[in-house]
Amino acid sequence: MFTFQDQVVWVTGSSTGIGRAAALGFAQHGAKVIIHYNSSAQEAEELAGEIKKLGREVLLVKGDVADKNQVKEMVAQIEERFGRIDILVNNAGSLVKRARLEELEEDLWDRIMNVNLKSVYLVSQAVLPLMKLQGKGKIINVTSVAARNGGGKGSLAYAASKGGVSTLTRGMAKDLVEYNILVNAIAPGVISTPFHDRFSSPELRKVMASQIPMGREGTPEETIGSILFLASSYADYITGEIVEVNGGQLMD
């Protein structure tokens, strides 16, 4: 249904989970893909290999998406190689660590805000000159069901950061529409990824799944159809929209 033949797509945080599935999905639909990672070098290399096997061009960039200089450096590498960025998927993010309010140290708060929220601002701002020059662009942010339900146990700071991502999505949609840059988001619910392997116990996951009308966690592959849709010409009249991919856990 969708084609991204020869379009240049940058997916941040694409070595694992939803980002990885999205990078693969775009490559399968014809795109040239920029894989970004910060620490998971081996996984990123493996993904690059898979994408090359599909016959698509791929570029690996490494850096901290919450550090302005590193973001600039990555955009410069992309510009040198491809000269354009048609689609940006702001996917990089992390729960970092579960902590209730009384345990939440300032440093942890800052880390969570930086990786989830500041990163979206910095990366979007850095790709803006290129997209303006092209006269078009699509930005898809990955927010979370936590943005609206306050998050699971000990994830209030993460939820707040994702609330920021959702609001930023709408603000950016209004701000960038005059440049023909459309900004939308997907809000995954509980998705089976290393994210939950790391931060959620099997007992907690069982409870979470029981609260989903579809009765199960989603898979990373089940989230990317919505990213591809928003990035495609199918969604050229949609901006400021957040598509919830949550098996019915929370309805808008």
Binding site: M1, E222, T239, E241
Partner: peptide, 17 residues
């Protein structure tokens, strides 16, 4: 399509924002 198989209970706005 299968692209939306984990999307349910939602309303998708197609209204130019």
């Amino acid at each position: 399509s299968e692209d939306a198989k984990f999307v349910t209970g939602q309303c998708l706005n197609v209204s130019g924002g």
